[in-house]
Structure formats: structure tokens, C-alpha cells
Amino acid sequence: MAFDKAKFIEELKSMTVLELNDLVKAIEEEFGVSAAAPVAVAAAGGDAAAAAPSEVSVILTSPGAAKIAVVKVVKEITGLGLKEAKDLVDNVPSPIKEGIAPEEAEALQAKLEEAGAVVEVK
């Protein structure tokens, strides 16, 4: 069975930031390497840069069981008032932050999930 590079790249494009992060960690562990140098080299190539988005959005898909805690975190993240944050949480799916760096989105996703929310990064 031959390796299909185009199919592999398409699969990478469909992965979330957290899934990509887990993949990188698994590759580092499996082969005993660090992604620091390959990422710098890959960024110079067109295909690798296209696989990783430069701006993403954090979408709240469900507040989970701890809705009040999620409202507080949404209020903190967005700077909205309590009523506006509650409206965002009540009307899922809701974009919490859009057009941000993948690293920031990953941190926000972790914070929201810690409060009990279900979040998607696109």
C-alpha cells in the first residue's frame, strides 16, 4: 500500500488544534525527536504552512452541566456583561472568540472545558 501524501494533508487540515498537538506529541515520543526544528523547516515549505491555520475561532457547542461556571468563564474571556455572557451560553453554538492564534484558542478551550463546557476550535 503506497503512502498517499495528498490524503494525509487533507486529514491534517480537518484536525482541531488539540488533535494536531496530540499528534505532534505522539510523533515526538515514538521517534524520540523534537518538533522544534522540523516545524521551522516545514514553515518554509508551502504544504506544511497550509495545513496549520494562522487564525481560528473558539465555538461553544454546549455549556455542560456547570452552566454558571461556564457563564463566568465566558464573561471573563469576552469582557461582556453577565447578561450578554449568559445569552452566549444559552444560544449555542456560539462563537466565543474569532480570528485568534491557535495557541490562544487552545488555552481558551482548555479554560472553558475545565469549567465543564464543550468547545470546538475551527
Rank of each mutant, 00 (worst) to 15 (best):
L80E: 07
A51W: 01
V39D: 03
K75Y: 03
V73Y: 05
P38V: 00
V58W: 02
A42L: 02
P63H: 06
A43H: 04
E30C: 04
E11G: 10
E104S: 11
V70A: 01
A26D: 02
A48W: 01
S57N: 12
A69T: 06
M15C: 11
K97I: 01
I59Q: 12
P38W: 00
A50H: 10
D22N: 12
E11L: 14
K7A: 15
E76I: 08
A49Y: 06
A52I: 05
V41D: 04
Q109F: 03
A115L: 09
I59H: 09
A117V: 10
K83R: 10
E29V: 05
K75W: 06
I68T: 15
E76R: 11
A117Y: 02
P102H: 05
T61M: 11
A51I: 05
E29A: 13
L112R: 00
E10Q: 14
K86G: 12
A101C: 13
E103Q: 14
V73A: 07
E104H: 10
L23T: 00
I9M: 13
D87C: 02
P93V: 11
K5C: 06
S14N: 15
K75D: 10
Q109V: 13
Q109K: 13
V41Y: 09
E55A: 03
V24M: 00
V56I: 04
S62G: 12
P53Q: 00
E76Y: 04
S57M: 05
A101I: 11
G64R: 03
M1Q: 05
G46C: 10
L60K: 06
G116N: 10
E114G: 15
G64A: 11
E55G: 01
P102S: 06
A36G: 08
K86F: 12
L12Q: 02
S94M: 09
F8G: 01
S57W: 07
A51Y: 02
M1N: 03
L82W: 15
D47S: 07
L20A: 04
V33E: 02
G116P: 07
T78R: 04
M15N: 06
E103N: 14
V24I: 03
V92S: 04
G64I: 01
S94G: 12
I100Q: 02
F8R: 03
P95H: 07
D22M: 13
K97F: 05
E84R: 10
K97W: 07
I100E: 00
E11H: 12
K67H: 00
